[in-house]
C-alpha cells in the first residue's frame, strides 16, 4: 500500500464530488484567472484575494479537506514563502507614488509595498494550490480524462486524433499508481542494499538516483511493451472506430452551478477590468 499523497482522489460523497467534471475544470480555470488578474488598488486586491481565500476554505470544507493539513503536507511551499519574502525585502518593489512608504531595520529601508506584494504572491500560491488539490481530491482520474476528452473534442475537426490523446492520458493516469509502487519497491530494495537516499555528498546521491532510475526505466519499458501487446490482442486498433462506455450527462443543476460560477467570476472581472474601487465609491457616497 502506498503512502497517502497529496493530489490523490479521496472517496467521499460530497457536493463537489458529484459535480460534473467538465464544470469543475471550467471553474478551476476561471478561479485561476480571478487569482492572477490585477485589481485596481491594494485595498481591492486584498479584498478580492480575501474573498477568494474564504471561498477556498469553504470549498475545502465541502470537500472534507483541511487547509492546515494541506499546508503542512506541502512543506516545499513554506520554503517558497520564506524565499519570496526575502527576495521582496532585498529586491524591493514599490511604485514611485509610494516611495516614502517604508520602515527601517537599522539603516535598511524596507518598503511596505514590497511586503504587500510578497503577501499577494503568497496568497495567490496558497489559493492556487488549494483549488488544484480540491479538483484532484474530488474527481477520479477517470472523470478528469473524460472531461479533458470533452474539452479536446473540438480539435477533432482540425484533424487532431483526440481519441488517441484521450487514451494516452487515461493510460498515464491508470499507470501512475502502479509506477509509484514500482518506485517505492525499488527504493526499498536499493535501501536494503545500503543505498542512502537521504544523506551523503552529491556524487553518492547521484549514484543513488541512478540505482533508482535505471530499474524504473527497465520495468516501465517491460510494462509498456506487455501492455501494448495486451491491448492489441484485446482488439484495440487506434485507427478504427470505438464505442464509448462512459458518457457525461449534463444535469439541470449543473447548468445552475454554471450560471453561479460564471456570475461570480463576472463580478471579479468587473472589479479587475472595470477598475472598480469599492472603497472609493463608498467614500464618494458617504461624503456626497
Amino acid at each position: 500500500m502506498s503512502r497517502f499523497t497529496m493530489g490523490r482522489y479521496v472517496p467521499y460523497n460530497s457536493f463537489l464530488h458529484r459535480m460534473d467534471p467538465r464544470l469543475k475544470i471550467y471553474s478551476l480555470i476561471i478561479f485561476m484567472i480571478a487569482i492572477f488578474v490585477n485589481y485596481p488598488t491594494w485595498a481591492m486586491t486584498y479584498t478580492m484575494l480575501g474573498i477568494l481565500f474564504v471561498m477556498t476554505i469553504v470549498l475545502l470544507r465541502l470537500a472534507h479537506m483541511s487547509l492546515l493539513s494541506l499546508l503542512k503536507s506541502l512543506s516545499s511551499l513554506w520554503f517558497m514563502v520564506v524565499f519570496i519574502l526575502i527576495i521582496y525585502i532585498f529586491v524591493p518593489r514599490y511604485s514611485e507614488a509610494n516611495a516614502d512608504w517604508y520602515f527601517l531595520i537599522g539603516t535598511y529601508k524596507v518598503y511596505w509595498e514590497s511586503l504587500l506584494e510578497a503577501g499577494k504572491v503568497m496568497l495567490r500560491l496558497i489559493v492556487m494550490l488549494s483549488v488544484s488539490m480540491i479538483l484532484t481530491a474530488t474527481t477520479t482520474p477517470l472523470a478528469l480524462t473524460d472531461a479533458l476528452d470533452w474539452y479536446l473534442s473540438p480539435l477533432r475537426w482540425m484533424g487532431v486524433p483526440t481519441p488517441i490523446l484521450a487514451m494516452i492520458i487515461a493510460l498515464a493516469l491508470r499507470f501512475i499508481p502502479t509506477i509509484l509502487e514500482d518506485v517505492e519497491r525499488i527504493l526499498k530494495a536499493q535501501s536494503s542494499r545500503g543505498v542512502d537516499f537521504k544523506h551523503g555528498h552529491i556524487f553518492a546521491k547521484f549514484r543513488a538516483i541512478i540505482s533508482l532510475i535505471i530499474p524504473l526505466f527497465v520495468s516501465s519499458f517491460v510494462r509498456s511493451d506487455e501492455l501494448a501487446n495486451a491491448m492489441e490482442c484485446r482488439g484495440y486498433d487506434p485507427t478504427s472506430k470505438r464505442t464509448k462506455y462512459r458518457k457525461l450527462h449534463f444535469q439541470w443543476w449543473d447548468l445552475f452551478e454554471f450560471v453561479v460560477v460564471s456570475a461570480v467570476i463576472a463580478c471579479f472581472f468587473y472589479v479587475a477590468f472595470g477598475h472598480f474601487d469599492a472603497y472609493a465609491t463608498w467614500w464618494g457616497l458617504v461624503t456626497k
Binding site: D182, R185, I186, K188, A189, Q190, S192, R193, I210, S211, I214, P215, V218, S219
Partner: peptide
Amino acid sequence: HVGLVFQFPEYQLF
C-alpha cells in the same frame, strides 16, 4: 546484517 530479498528482485538490477 539483515539481508532482504524482495519479491521479483530482478527489477533492482541496474
